[in-house]
Design a protein around this nucleic acid. Structure first.
Lengths: 249, 249
DNA sequence: CGTCTTTTTGACCATTTTCAATCAGTGTGG
DNA sequence: CCACACTGATTGAAAATGGTCAAAAAGACG
C-alpha cells in the first residue's frame, strides 16, 4: 500500500489518455462528471502493492501511467498472474462489487492511478449511463483477455504460450502508448511470464532462448526487441481483441 | 442455432428464478422494464449451439433453465471450456459489446433462455441504472470465475483441479437449483471436465477413479454423488464466491 | 441387438518440472 | 572504486506429471 498523493493531479480535461488513438473520447458532460468523480491521484513505486487479495478497498482506480499485474498468490508460495493492467484499465472493481478483492494488484513500474470513491460509482450509473455501459465493457473485455489466457494454458504448448504472451504484451503495450516501436521497455521478468503462462521460470527461459536463436526476438535486461512479429504471430495463433475504440474512466 | 420459440413464454412476473434464495429480487419498475425488454424465449435441445464463435448476434440471453458451456475451439480440434452457464447467467454479452462472439455457447441439457434485443441494452442503462450496475456485476463475476479456473490450470496438479471442478460445479449447481442434494444429475462428460481443466480425458478418468477409491465421490453415468464434500474441498483449496445476493436480468 | 459414444485400464512416451550451479547485472556500503 | 550481496538469467541433468496410443468394457439409443 505504499504511495502518496501527488502534488499536481492530472486534470481530466487534459488527460493524456484522451489524446491517444483508440481511446473513446468523452462528451463534455461525461468529462465534467468524471472530473468530479475523480477524488485524487495515487502515485506508487515499482513493486508496490496497490490492492491486496482478500481486502476491501473504498476505491476504484484507473491506471493513468505505468504497468501493473493482477495476480493470485497461493499458500504454497506459487503465484498465478491473471493479467496485466495497462493505462486506461480499471483496477479494484471487484472490491466495489463483491466487497473484497479476489486478487492482488502490484505495480511493475512507477505508476499513477486516478482514484475514485467506490461510493460514487452508483452515481455514475445513475447520471451517466454511457459511462456505466463503458464500465461493463471494460469488465467484459477483461473477462475476454483472461479467457484467452485460459485457452493458452489449457491447450497450447510452452512454445506457443510464450509466443502468445510476447505478442499479447506488445499489442497491449502498443495500444496504450507504452511501446512506440518493436523495441520497448518490458518491466516483466521471465519469472513473471512463467507465472502468467503456468510454466516454470527455467523452461520459460529455455523456450525464449530458442525463439531468440530462431531470430524472432531479442530480450536483454528489461528491453525486448521483436524482430519478427509475423513469425511470433504464427506461433501464437489467434489473438482476438475488440476492434472498437476502447472506453476508460 | 437449433431452437424454436416456445409456446408459452415465462412471464417475468412469475420468473422461477426470482423465487430462489440467493437471487436479488426486482423492484416493480425493474420488473416492468425487464418484462418489456424481454423479446422472447429460446428453447433448445441438449447439444445445440446457442451462439457461435466469431459471429455476431442481435440478442443477449439469460439462462432460464438448463446448463450450457462457453467454449473455444481451436484449429487442431482441441477445445477449451471457459466456463459453464447456469440459470441466471447472461450469455452473449460479448456480441453486444464487441460486435462478435469470442467463444461458442453450447447447451449441455435442454434449455430455455430469455431473449433480449441487443439494441435495447442501451435503454437498460439509461432507464434502469440499477440493472446496468447488475450487468457489470455479472460480467465481473464471470471474470472472477474464469480467473479462478486460470489459477487452477496454471498452478495446481491434476488431482487438485479435478477436486476443484467437482466442488465448483456442485456449488454453482446448488446455488442455481440444479442440485438439490449431494447427489445430482451432471450433464458433463469426463471429456468436458478434461477440456475445462486442460487435461486429457484419460488422465481425468484416472484421477476421478482414484478419488472414488478414496471415497470422496461416486460418478456413474450422468449422476454424481459427492460423499465427502469436505475432503474434496480440502484438495480443491480456495473457492471464492461473491457473498451478496446475485442479480440477474 | 447393433452402433455409437463414453468410460476404463495398461503400457509407453515426452513435455515440462525440479534440482543444482554458474553467470550476469545492479545496488550498497566502506 | 571495489568487495559483497542480491536478484534474475542461463544451462545441464535427472525425475515426474500428465499425454498419447491402443483396446476393451459399459452404457446409451434407435
Amino acid at each position: 500500500m505504499a504511495g502518496r498523493t501527488r502534488r499536481s493531479p492530472t486534470l481530466c480535461g487534459s488527460c493524456p489518455l484522451r489524446k491517444m488513438p483508440g481511446y473513446r473520447p468523452f462528451s463534455d458532460t461525461e468529462l465534467a462528471f468524471v472530473s468530479e468523480f475523480k477524488s485524487g491521484e495515487l502515485e506508487v513505486q515499482a513493486g508496490a502493492t496497490v490492492l491486496v487479495d482478500g481486502h476491501d478497498s473504498p476505491h476504484v482506480f484507473t491506471v493513468l501511467e505505468g504497468w501493473a499485474v493482477r495476480l493470485k498468490e497461493l499458500e504454497d508460495g506459487s503465484r498465478q498472474i491473471i493479467n496485466f493492467a495497462f493505462p486506461g484499465d480499471l483496477v479494484g472493481l471487484q472490491s466495489s462489487l463483491f466487497d473484497q478483492m479476489q486478487h492482488t494488484v502490484e505495480a511493475l513500474t512507477p505508476m499513477r492511478l486516478c482514484v475514485f470513491e467506490r461510493a460514487g460509482l452508483w452515481n455514475l450509473y445513475r447520471d451517466q449511463p454511457g459511462l456505466g455501459f463503458d464500465t461493463t465493457w471494460l469488465a467484459a473485455r477483461e473477462e475476454l483477455f483472461v479467457a484467452q489466457h485460459l485457452v493458452q494454458l489449457g491447450q497450447r504448448t510452452a512454445r506457443e504460450r510464450i509466443a502468445y504472451t510476447i505478442v499479447y504484451i506488445f499489442m497491449r503495450a502498443k495500444a496504450s502508448g507504452l511501446a512506440k516501436s518493436f523495441e520497448f521497455d518490458i518491466p516483466v521478468t521471465q519469472k513473471d511470464m512463467a507465472d502468467l503462462m503456468g510454466l516454470s521460470a527455467v523452461h520459460t527461459n529455455k523456450v525464449l532462448k530458442q525463439l531468440e536463436r530462431e531470430g524472432l526476438l531479442k530480450w536483454s535486461r528489461s528491453m525486448i526487441n521483436i524482430t519478427d512479429l509475423e513469425g511470433l504471430r504464427d506461433i501464437a495463433g489467434e489473438m482476438a481483441e475488440p476492434a472498437a475504440a476502447r472506453p476508460f474512466l
